[in-house]
Amino acid sequence: MTDQAYNFAYLDEQTKRMIRRAILKGVAVPGYQVPFASREMPMPYGWGTGGVQVTSACLMPEDCLKVIDQGADDTTNAVSIRKFFQRTAGVQVTEATAEASVIQTRHRIPETPLREGQILVYQVPIPEPLRFLEPRETETRKMHELEEYGLMHVKLYEDIARHGQIATSYAYPVKVEGRYVMDPSPIPKFDNPKLSDNAALQLFGAGREQRIYALPPYTQVVSLDFDDHPFEAGKAPHDCDLCGAGESYLDEVIVDDAGGRMFVCSDTDFCASRQAVGHRGRLSPEEV
């Protein structure tokens, strides 16, 4: 089959208009989960069908797309979604954060600060932050409506009671502009401070759950906490073993069966560009 059988960026124009309306509403009410008629996509739920639909509705022919999965440009999910849009939209693609105009991400915010005009699209598995505390959707909607968010703190209370600290390390709940409590998708809480006052437009798409929500540029986002247990953005206490960066979020990699391990930047573009200008880490190859 030729790729021309598809409309630009796979979805038909009416669907894209529907999604854009949801996005506009989401931008108008930051943090509010807007229902939308999620379509079947040619990939399974859980692979980013929500993010793909939002990206599809945002893409223009002159856009430059970057797709990351857990910070990496070269994992299966990122590669297939990037190829999908290369085929169906023919847009330029890149791995460099600074060059991209649309970035679809799964579970990370790039280390390189985003700029105005960029769009960051998140893939969201479960948009409802109160889901595991209150299973009734009718009730959680009412709680959002009436701003009854005491329950969110019960979750944090349980964390401290059980672990001595707030052990939630990803999908850490945030409050947007003092109003809606929002699940920032499973990004590590290390990335939570970057949600706030970000220059880029941040869009969240949950395909299976049929919800879209958004953070317009420069939105105030506060991570929830207790007065005596303040929010801390944590990361592994190491430097990157390949580029030596001390401030980036790290992945732990087991390298042998004798307890050997290394820590590397989860953001591959950030790590590679640092190595390219000569930064070296503990396990970098010897220079020849």
Partner: peptide, 27 residues
Amino acid sequence: LRMGVSAGGNVGERLMAVGARHYADIR
């Protein structure tokens, strides 16, 4: 009751619902 939440969390829920945000006090 919330069966998935500890006894302390169950008692503390109403406190947190009316704005208590100090863990030690709630406990």
